[in-house]
Nucleic acid binder design. Sequence first.
DNA 1: TAGGTATATTGCAATATTACGATTAACTAA
DNA 2: TTAGTTAATCGTAATATTGCAATATACCTA
Lengths: 109, 109
Amino acid sequence: MGLTKTEIYTDRQNEIASFAKVIAHPARVAILQYLLKHEQCICGTLVEEIGLAQATISQHLKELKSVNLIKGNIEGTSVCYCINLNVYKKIQKLFNELLGRDIKLNNNC
Amino acid sequence: MGLTKTEIYTDRQNEIASFAKVIAHPARVAILQYLLKHEQCICGTLVEEIGLAQATISQHLKELKSVNLIKGNIEGTSVCYCINLNVYKKIQKLFNELLGRDIKLNNNC
DNA sequence: TAGGTATATTGCAATATTACGATTAACTAA
DNA sequence: TTAGTTAATCGTAATATTGCAATATACCTA
């Protein structure tokens, strides 16, 4: 136990959950917001901006990279991170399918 | 440690992360999809549909209720669950701010 | 080559999550 | 009142997440 039973869900359900998990931490939300505003950044800037240890920020960047939401280009001693547009758009689409409905209440709840 | 430092983030960042966390499990995605399709349901139906133990489904429903994304009305021996439209719309808005941007790539990444 | 800078990785402790059996609570019907 | 139904809660085991110090890696410059 303690392990999600991924095999009983559809690929799409697992995919949505995976992307949501990446966004499910305020530090990673903060990183995404920073990248949306400034287009690119290096790890050190985020350490100053957010106020977590360098190891911790590096770990959060790794999770964002794990679903390819961001990508990093090595530039000398530092790494320039930016949003991966294709994956960003994919998440947009997936989330919109689940959360973008125009619901009407016809039930008695 | 092992505890998120919520105090260093904005309320909005924490809010987005909290809502994302609720969606960050395929069982809860499946529950939401079921509710979007059928408008309402009882716990027992989800147990059959999804294939997890009753206690587990009840726990997932509790998490969806914890952010008021769903609400439950007691109807005899069972509980009728449905989506809370106001909160659904709020999540729509919050996620759209973060993920609904029309980004253009002007950087060299 | 040696020292400095930037990031990733490792190891660890604290806490959270997932899942389920067993039990409890609350209502319904015989 | 008693038995059956439905859902919530409790307790527990397994695993995942968060955060950081310490260390490793990689590159740049003098």
